[in-house]
């Protein structure tokens, strides 16, 4: 018997690697609590049992990269009271948005023996380009503690504690030494959205920008500093053009150094 008092959760996949939705299954300690409070109604990665919509909460992973995706997201939106996008694909177009800087037909010709069967859009775009999104959870992949926080906030009818400031804030709070200042290592931390807990600098690596741009990114000033530290234009293009390449700020900054 279904417990009708519990809100229904659906997890949807678009163009993506599945890593973000697997974060939900990684929530081993919280999973039983979660299942007691919410009905996991549509989550093919976890169960074949599907409960019909509408759904109180939809988690959407992946970008829109095919005509079919573009249609399907409209249906998902119609069935969802709250729609939360999870991960860099859903929030910025993902690594597959690298096609947006090139000719996708050209790629298809190189990769597929019979490219005429490939039906794809010329651009990979974030979900919010197509439908209204209630909340975006960043990261490649997302941080599972933040996912639990977002679901917990939804269940308890409060605002999620998901700050939009820089990775530097997390670095300094954990006492990590700044790799850029002390080691001269180019780092995207000052322009990157927090959420990972400043993982890479803690292992003496510069930030790779997995969580996309922070709330007020000054990429122009950071790029200028990178150049002082020895980075070439090509290095800057590569740095901004990874998982969040099609986010507005990173896209513009990478294009600026392409010439």
């Amino acid at each position: 018997m279904r417990d009708k008092s519990k809100p229904k959760l659906a997890v949807w996949k678009f163009s993506s690697c599945d890593g973000c939705q697997l974060s939900l299954l990684d929530c081993e300690d919280e999973l039983l609590d979660l299942a007691s409070k919410i009905e996991i109604a549509n989550f093919p990665e976890a169960s074949r049992a599907v409960v019909k919509g509408p759904y109180e909460l939809s988690l959407v992973e992946g970008s829109i990269s095919t005509p079919h995706d573009a249609q399907r997201i409209q249906e998902v939106r119609r069935q969802s009271k709250f729609l939360v996008t999870i991960g860099a694909c859903a929030t910025a177009g993902g690594i597959q948005a690298l096609r947006n800087f090139a000719d996708v037909a050209e790629f298809a010709r190189y990769v597929y023996a019979a490219p005429q069967y490939i039906e794809t859009l010329s651009n990979s775009t974030p979900i919010a380009y197509h439908v209204f999104v209630d909340f975006e959870l960043r990261g490649c992949p997302i941080n599972k503690a933040q996912l639990v926080e977002v679901i917990g906030a939804f269940l308890n009818n409060r605002r999620p504690n998901v700050p939009h400031y820089s990775v530097c804030m997390e670095c300094k709070r954990r006492g990590t030494i700044c790799v850029m200042v002390a080691q001269g290592i180019p780092c995207l931390g000052p322009v990157t959205h927090a959420g990972c807990g400043a993982l890479c600098p803690a292992y003496r690596r510069g930030c790779y920008g997995c969580f996309g741009p922070m709330e007020t990114p000054n990429t122009v000033a950071l790029s200028s500093r990178w150049k002082e530290l020895g980075a070439a234009n090509a290095d800057l293009v590569r740095a901004y053009r990874t998982f969040n390449a099609f986010s507005e700020v990173f896209r513009k900054e990478s294009v600026a150094h392409e010439r």
């Binding site: 919280e30 609590d33 979660l34 007691s36 409070k37 639990v148 926080e149 679901i151 917990g152 906030a153 269940l155 308890n156 409060r158 504690n161 400031y165 820089s166 530097c168 804030m169 300094k172 709070r173 700044c178 931390g189 000052p190 322009v191 922070m214 007020t216 000054n218 122009v220 000033a221 950071l222």
Partner: peptide, 28 residues
Amino acid sequence: KRCLTCGNCTLVCPTCFCSNVEDVTDLA
């Protein structure tokens, strides 16, 4: 134009004391 608004200056400053207060709940 140069400022990254990253917050590093304030967090290394020995007198900056500003804080945020967050309420967290468990799922249940």
